[in-house]
Simulated scan of single mutants.
Amino acid sequence: MPGNVFDQIFPLGEKNDAFAQYFTGQSYLAPLTSGSVPVMNVSFEPGCRNDWHIHHGTDGGGDQILLCTAGSGWYQAEGEAPISMEPGTAIRVPAGTKHWHGAKADAWFSHLAFITPGEGVGNEWLEPVTDEVYGRLPRNGANA
Rank of each mutant, 00 (worst) to 15 (best):
G3N: 12
G3I: 07
N4H: 13
N4I: 13
Q8I: 07
I9M: 08
I9E: 09
P11A: 02
E14Y: 12
F19P: 00
F19H: 12
Q21M: 11
Q21H: 06
Y22C: 12
Y22H: 14
Y22P: 04
F23M: 10
Q26Y: 03
Q26T: 13
Q26D: 11
Q26C: 11
Y28A: 05
Y28M: 02
Y28S: 05
A30W: 09
T33G: 04
S34C: 08
S34V: 05
V37Y: 11
P38H: 10
M40E: 10
N41E: 01
G47R: 01
R49M: 08
N50Y: 00
W52M: 06
W52I: 03
H56E: 10
T58C: 08
D59A: 15
G62R: 02
G62I: 02
I65V: 10
I65L: 11
I65N: 09
L67H: 15
T69R: 06
G71F: 00
S72P: 10
G73I: 07
W74G: 07
G79P: 01
E80T: 02
E80V: 03
A81G: 12
P82M: 11
P82F: 06
I83V: 15
I83T: 13
S84Q: 15
E86Q: 13
G88R: 15
T89C: 05
I91M: 06
A95D: 05
A95F: 09
G96Q: 00
G96C: 08
T97Q: 03
K98G: 03
W100A: 00
G102P: 12
A103I: 01
A105P: 00
W108D: 11
H111S: 07
A113C: 10
F114H: 06
E119R: 15
E119C: 09
V121T: 07
G122S: 14
G122I: 09
W125N: 15
E127Q: 06
V129H: 02
T130I: 04
D131V: 00
D131M: 04
E132H: 14
E132Q: 12
V133F: 12
V133M: 14
V133H: 12
V133L: 14
Y134H: 02
L137W: 08
N140H: 15
A144N: 10
